[in-house]
Design a protein around this nucleic acid. Structure first.
Length: 195
DNA sequence: CATGGGATTGACT
DNA sequence: GTCAATCCCATGC
């Protein structure tokens, strides 16, 4: 995807990335779950302003923001909006389509493990695709981590909206997007009016 | 320089 | 349902 795709309101990009594909390390998966983050709200790392950690978030759109979570997992984001704005889309789940055996091996799972176990969470998918912190800042059009346009059949899938997962601030914002009814997402979507 | 908190996951009661 | 692993980095003394 070109930089112009990402240089738009982060909520639009989060919705439009549903159905696109992520390619890395000999594996491909279709994005079925995303969340939006923006420096105007406190759940976003960029809320604290420009620091060493948030450099990539405030940089040009179309780059990967990869950071370590809980000391264990690498989480993948796509940087959005013009340079100077700290915004990104967290990739939370993929439907595996290529390199399933390699994904299972990287995840330490048996080859017979169900496909839904491979990439159904932001830490799981980076492990399955072999994405590490060294990919932070990489150009998502050139790689090593590449995001590709929607393939046939993914052009017009229904999308559900809900609240973001695993955060303690700004929990009420409906900034999570999922393929409606997908078995490959990390957790069920609760209706926005549920609270 | 010391401290504390995670955009999570998997193992266990 | 509970809980620990583990490390980067922002903050405060």
């Amino acid at each position: 995807m070109k930089p112009s795709f990402y240089e738009r309101p982060v909520l639009d990009v989060a919705r439009d990335l549903i159905g696109c594909a992520v390619r890395h390390g000999g594996c491909v998966g279709v994005i079925v779950e995303t969340e939006a983050y923006h420096d105007s709200e406190p759940a976003c790392h960029a809320f604290v302003g420009l620091t060493r950690r948030t450099e990539t978030l405030f940089g040009p759109p179309g780059r990967a923001y990869v950071y370590r979570s809980y000391g264990i997992h690498a989480l993948l984001n796509a940087v959005c909006e013009p340079a100077g704005v700290g915004a990104a889309v967290l990739i939370r789940a993929l439907e595996p389509v290529e390199g399933l055996e390699l994904m299972a091996a990287r995840r330490g799972l048996d080859g017979a493990a169900p496909a839904r176990a491979l990439c159904s969470g932001p830490g799981k998918l980076t492990q399955a695709l072999g994405i590490e912190l060294t990919e932070n800042g990489c150009d998502l059009a050139r790689g090593p981590v590449v995001i590709e346009p929607r393939a046939a059949g993914w052009g017009d899938v229904p999308v559900s909206v809900g609240r973001r997962i695993g955060i303690t601030k700004a929990v009420e914002l409906p900034w999570r997007f999922c393929v409606t009814g997908s078995r490959f997402i990390s957790a069920p979507v609760r209706a926005v009016e549920d609270r």
